[in-house]
Design a protein around this nucleic acid. Structure first.
Lengths: 260, 260
DNA sequence: TTATGCGCTCTTGCATACCAGATAACATTT
DNA sequence: AAATGTTATCTGGTATGCAAGAGCGCATAA
């Protein structure tokens, strides 16, 4: 199979182009000065750079399987599809390479990497450590936990509803949400950012294996255990619960990948 | 103080240029084939890309304090100093930004970020989790540990010798080496790579605070505890020892930074 | 002298152009 | 026909060119 076919992400790219034309926040003069520089940055980056656009589109396409493992394309073609020049694509691709999603083979194009069982072992070992820490940090800080617990519970309830409706994708989405909230609310931004990358990879693996494995009702229950430990301020318990949850899930995923 | 002065890394850059002209390994036909692919890659990447060069030089300069926090420069000037165009510098800078070492302010140049106590809290929380996991993994795999233990012991002895000679920098270097070996030998490449970034940040903080704090002889002792737990295959113990070590060090560093 | 507004400059982000090197097809020779 | 040498082409890495926007200074007016 030659790799010169058209690519399937044109739609996503177009949607994204539209988003970029959203009106920016304008200073109407009524606002008080002394905007926190932090907040200002937020407002400014409303308009993503092209690099960011390319990165997001490519990453999303890889994660949801639109660009399957083994897919290969040259930067120039990708740039055409995204209506931009090679420069931003090049930078985005390099970023994806650092995250382990693609590799660029000199003079052979960029290639979407396959999901290896060994990769998932690594990813889950890290998720165990990261989310264990996140749960512990949340349990340690009751004030912060207060607000977070609601989000965690919502995500878990959502999972339960999706399960009852036999909505596997909905379940997966809600499960992802739970884990992202867990690390985002930990108060450690580095932890949140690093773990996000890991969750991405896990998500990709799950997208592929989802049809092949039974959905564990157990995950809902385990999430609730984590939540109640956090609520109780039980650092050790929260950590152990989060670790146990990911450790168990790890086994299932890796078994499922082996079956592919 | 205007920021248009010449920069101090010219030397480093030049040294690097020289290194690049070193004779590459040439295949004279006499060498036996079957070089380990790992080693081969090493050889090939002898010639780094310019992006890599820029990245390494800048990073090293930041870590060792040559480019102090608050330092500001524009990409063009950096490119001149490194004898390359803006493109590779631009990419390298973006990489450093993702690692949290610099930030690029839209039309004000790139700025070396200060070391905040809050950053170090985050970094050390993660180091605790990562190195704890690494130690556990090593303890779990006696075969792998076999070879690694020697390296860990060497680094620790080196620390001890440096302490006896009142060589603070030597001690710091050896300590770094210990921690890098620990994660590199864990068998989890992702863990190794992610932790390397964290160690870099910790190293930078220590470079600044080194003169202000008493060197803990304790660290040698703690390292030995970690090593013996690994040797004994005691996963729980190894993890606890590694965690405890970084947790204690965390307190000292953060106190030292506050004193700056 | 101070305040206000206009424009110049400077810098980044992106596009385009260029180059080196590797691959692959083709030709040539045996 | 097979093997080997040669050349054309293609691709990523790098350089350069261009445009847009933010800051700063200068001029002008009060």
């Amino acid at each position: 199979m030659k790799s010169s076919d058209k690519i399937g992400w044109a739609v996503t790219a177009e949607k994204l182009m539209v988003d970029k034309t959203l009106p920016l926040a304008v200073d109407d003069g009524s606002a008080r000065l002394r905007v926190y520089p932090h907040e200002m940055e937020r407002k400014i980056q409303k308009k993503d750079s092209l690099v960011e656009d390319a990165y997001k589109v490519l990453k999303a396409s890889i994660l949801d399987g639109t660009l399957p493992a083994g897919y290969q394309a040259v930067e120039h073609r990708i740039a055409d599809q995204l209506n931009m020049s090679r420069t931003p694509v090049h930078e985005a691709v390099i970023r994806l390479q650092h995250e382990g999603l693609v590799r660029v083979m000199p003079r052979r194009g960029v290639q979407v990497l396959p999901i290896l069982a060994s990769d998932m072992i690594e990813v889950y070992q890290l998720l165990v450590a990261m989310e264990g820490t996140a749960a512990m940090l949340l349990a340690k800080d009751p004030d912060r936990a207060q607000a977070s617990i609601q989000m965690l519970e919502d995500a878990t309830s959502q999972m339960e509803r999706a399960l009852d409706a036999d909505d596997l994708r909905g379940w997966a989405r809600a499960d992802d949400q739970f884990h992202r909230v867990l690390v985002n609310e930990s108060g450690n931004r580095r932890l949140a950012k690093m773990t996000a990358t890991l969750i991405d990879q896990a998500q990709r693996a799950r997208a592929v294996t989802l049809p092949f494995r039974s959905v564990p009702r157990m995950s809902v229950q385990e999430h609730r255990i984590i939540i109640s430990a956090i609520r109780a301020g039980d650092q050790i318990g929260a950590r152990a619960a989060a670790e146990g949850h990911r450790t168990r899930a790890s086994g299932e995923i890796i078994k499922a990948i082996g079956r592919l």
